[in-house]
Measured scan of single mutants.
Amino acid sequence: AQASVVANQLIPINTYLTLVMMRSEVVTPVGIPAEDIPRLVSMQVNRAVPLGTTLMPDMVKGYA
């Protein structure tokens, strides 16, 4: 199964992502692939992302 990117903490709206904020986990539904974690660093979330939430492409500015 493919691992997705999951929030490792509460990520406030407009926060620039860093490695410590994200982890990879096999979840349903599938979100942003874990292999894209390096690409996500320094990208901004466009909403608050609670701890344990799967990151979806529409949550990250400029990802989709």
Rank of each mutant, 00 (worst) to 15 (best):
R39D: 03
P33T: 08
R39Q: 11
R39N: 12
I11N: 00
P38W: 08
V45D: 00
D36K: 07
S42H: 15
P29K: 05
V27R: 07
N46M: 15
T54Y: 02
V49N: 01
A48D: 13
G52H: 07
V60E: 00
I11P: 01
A3G: 13
V5R: 01
Q44L: 11
I11W: 01
D36I: 08
A64M: 10
P50Y: 11
A7V: 07
L40E: 00
M59C: 03
E35R: 04
Y63G: 04
G31H: 02
A64P: 09
A64R: 09
Y63T: 04
L40D: 00
G52R: 07
T53D: 11
A48F: 13
N8W: 08
G31S: 03
V30S: 14
T28P: 02
P12D: 11
G62T: 05
P38F: 11
A3F: 09
M43S: 05
M21V: 05
I32R: 01
A7Q: 01
V30R: 03
I11Q: 01
V45L: 08
A48T: 15
V60I: 13
P33F: 15
E35Q: 09
E35P: 10
V41C: 04
I13L: 14
I11E: 00
N46Q: 15
N14W: 09
V27D: 02
D58A: 14
P57M: 10
V49W: 02
L17P: 02
V45C: 03
I13A: 15
R23I: 05
V60C: 02
L17S: 00
P12T: 14
P29D: 07
A34L: 05
L19W: 14
V26A: 15
L19M: 13
A64E: 09
T54A: 07
G31L: 01
V45W: 01
V5H: 01
T15C: 03
M43R: 05
T53G: 11
G31F: 02
D58N: 13
Q44V: 11
I37A: 11
V45K: 00
Y16T: 12
P50E: 15
M43I: 04
G31T: 02
A34D: 14
M22T: 02
I13S: 12
R39S: 07
M22Q: 00
V27G: 03
V60A: 02
V41Y: 11
R47V: 06
P38A: 07
A64Q: 14
V30G: 10
V26L: 14
V49T: 06
D58L: 08
I37R: 08
I13E: 15
L19C: 05
T53I: 14
L19N: 06
V49P: 01
I32W: 02
S4T: 05
V49G: 00
T28R: 03
L51D: 11
G31A: 05
M56F: 11
Y16M: 15
L40P: 00
A1K: 03
I11M: 08
I37D: 00
M59L: 05
M43Q: 12
S24W: 11
Y16Q: 08
P12V: 05
I32F: 03
L10D: 15
I13W: 10
Q2I: 09
N46Y: 14
I37T: 07
Y63D: 03
M21S: 06
L55M: 10
V30A: 08
T28Q: 14
I32L: 08
V20S: 15
E25M: 07
N46T: 13
L55G: 01
A34W: 12
N14Y: 14
N14V: 02
E25A: 09
T18H: 13
V5G: 02
A64T: 10
E35D: 11
R39C: 10
P38S: 06
V26W: 05
P29G: 04
T54G: 03
A3T: 11
I32K: 01
S42T: 09
Q9C: 05
A3S: 15
V30Y: 15
A34K: 10
I13M: 12
I37P: 01
G62R: 05
E35Y: 06
L19Y: 12
Q44I: 13
M43Y: 13
Q9P: 00
V27A: 07
P33W: 11
Y16E: 09
A7F: 01
A34R: 04
A34P: 09
T53H: 09
L51K: 10
G52L: 06
K61Q: 12
S42E: 06
A34E: 12
P50V: 07
A1C: 03
V49Q: 02
Q9K: 09
I37V: 10
A3V: 06
E35M: 05
L51Y: 10
P29W: 04
A48V: 11
M21E: 02
M43A: 08
G52P: 00
T28G: 06
V60H: 00
M21D: 05
P50C: 05
E35H: 12
M22P: 00
M59I: 07
V20P: 13
M59Q: 07
L10W: 12
K61V: 15
T53N: 09
N14I: 02
N8S: 12
T28Y: 07
V27P: 02
V45I: 13
R39H: 08
R39K: 11
P33Y: 06
I11A: 01
V26G: 05
D36V: 07
I32Q: 00
T18S: 15
Q9A: 15
P38M: 07
L10H: 14
R47Y: 15
N46W: 08
R23T: 05
V49K: 00
T28K: 03
T15W: 09
K61P: 14
R23P: 00
M59Y: 13
T54M: 08
